[in-house]
Amino acid sequence: MKRLILTIALLSPACLLFAQQEKSDINQGNKLYEQQKYKEAEEAYRKSVAKKTETVEGNFNLGDALYKQKQYDKAQEQFNKLGASSNKAVAAQAYHNLGNSLLESKKLEESIEAYKKALINNPADDQTRYNLAYAQEKLKQQKQQNKNNKNKDNKNNKDDKNKQDQNKQNQDKKDQDKKDQDKKNSDQNKNDQNKDQDKKDQQNGQQPNKISKEDAQRMLDALNNQEKDTQDKLKNKKLKGVKVHITKDW
């Protein structure tokens, strides 16, 4: 079983076989490229392209030099143009390097398409096949990560909503408790005020709707005495009778 590995090394300009005779600028660019002087190599390749715009090797190697300088967008322009070549070998290598440039730019889906085009032109290229499998695996991981992040966001949103609801419930309970306590305090204040007023009334000798046991007894005794006097008066009146003038009739 083959292990999934990433091979992003660009195909070396020295290994490219083109029918066109190498020019001095291209040769100079290749030497600089091998020395990893990519900026100087780029300038040499641009000179060759300026002299002959349709030079395949000059344009291809220019794309390589741009790639090495991490100028991936410019490198993609070069390889994309070369991918339209009628020469399948050139097209396959151009799409391979285009796929690498897109991969470095995190454009996974586009890099996969580029690798597929490279394999159409050269089905036997294992290096491109490995890079294609790698890009597909990275895309799969990216989609799974995006899904996990979405689920996490949804969970966080749900947790936030539950927290907000709980906070609201807690606040409502606090508000209600405060209202209940305020009412209780108000009722207590009224009771205290009534007690204070009753106390004042007692101190002032005023006891509305209330009489002491002694006062009640005195009132009862007074009523009894009045009733007794009344009865005695009636009794005496009965015993004495009424004086009647008698006329002797005989």
Results as ranks from 00 to 15, higher is better:
242 V>T: 14
232 D>Y: 11
30 N>W: 08
159 D>G: 12
99 G>F: 03
123 P>V: 00
8 I>A: 13
163 K>R: 14
137 E>T: 07
194 N>P: 01
241 G>N: 09
243 K>Q: 07
17 L>Q: 15
171 Q>P: 04
115 Y>F: 04
147 K>Q: 12
120 I>T: 12
80 N>H: 06
98 L>F: 00
95 Y>M: 08
39 K>S: 05
100 N>D: 07
3 R>E: 15
58 G>P: 00
230 T>A: 05
132 L>G: 07
5 I>G: 13
56 V>W: 03
195 K>N: 06
239 L>W: 12
53 T>A: 14
127 Q>S: 14
177 D>T: 13
93 Q>M: 14
196 D>T: 08
20 Q>P: 07
96 H>W: 10
220 L>D: 11
218 R>I: 03
39 K>N: 14
192 D>Y: 05
20 Q>T: 10
192 D>N: 14
79 F>G: 03
142 Q>S: 08
39 K>P: 12
57 E>L: 09
127 Q>K: 14
51 K>L: 08
180 D>F: 10
242 V>I: 15
186 S>W: 01
153 D>K: 10
149 N>F: 04
178 K>R: 12
47 K>I: 05
72 Y>W: 05
142 Q>C: 02
66 L>P: 00
127 Q>F: 12
219 M>R: 07
141 Q>H: 07
172 D>I: 13
101 S>Q: 04
171 Q>L: 14
60 F>H: 09
187 D>H: 04
90 V>P: 00
142 Q>V: 02
41 A>K: 00
108 L>G: 00
120 I>N: 11
238 K>E: 12
42 E>R: 01
234 L>E: 10
123 P>E: 09
112 I>G: 02
119 L>H: 12
1 M>L: 04
176 Q>G: 01
243 K>F: 13
32 L>W: 02
112 I>E: 06
15 C>P: 11
74 K>N: 11
160 D>Q: 14
212 S>A: 04
59 N>R: 02
158 K>L: 01
